[in-house]
């Protein structure tokens, strides 16, 4: 078994600026329906939308980190092919679709993801346990 690591850091105000500039079009281009729903729910509950933006920033970082761990780059993979779900415990989980899912199925879909944020930055760390043919 091989271990691949991916990480990414996001400046949260940049995500806010993208929402301000591109609005819904940005959300739909980058985030899956589940991720968008989580954002709207968080935004409805939080003052000044901050929790929702932080979640979007964390998910952007996670998507980038996942693709880094895959080692494929974004060739043929859309941002919505990489979904970051929230489990009942609150822990994040990677779920792949489309071309990314095909890649994941072949390599062994075994991901560990950790997200964190403080102040203006969100960070994601991904570990991918890759099956190696014996």
């Amino acid at each position: 078994m091989n271990i691949s690591v991916g990480t990414d850091i996001v400046h949260i105000p940049r995500i806010r600026a993208l929402i301000d500039r591109f609005g819904d079009r940005f959300l739909k281009k980058v985030y899956t329906a589940i991720e968008q729903q989580d954002y709207w729910q968080a935004s409805a509950q939080a003052m000044a939308n901050q929790t929702g933006i932080v979640r979007l920033a964390g998910r952007w970082a996670a998507k980038e980190a996942v693709v880094k761990a895959m080692g494929t780059g974004w060739r043929g993979i859309r941002y919505t092919d990489v979904e970051i779900q929230r489990q009942g415990s609150g822990a994040p989980r990677v779920c792949l679709y489309g071309a990314a899912a095909k890649w994941g199925a072949a390599a062994g879909d075994n991901w560990q993801l950790s997200l964190s944020h403080d102040g203006e930055y969100a960070i994601a760390m991904v570990i991918f346990l890759r099956n190696v043919a014996e």
Binding site: R25, K29, V30, E64, V67, W74, R75, I77, R78, Y79
Partner: peptide, 14 residues
């Protein structure tokens, strides 16, 4: 309308 592309390394471009 807006147009987007995925760069293989740098991700989403507009």
């Amino acid at each position: 309308r807006e147009s987007y592309l995925n760069h293989p390394t740098f991700g989403l471009l507009y």
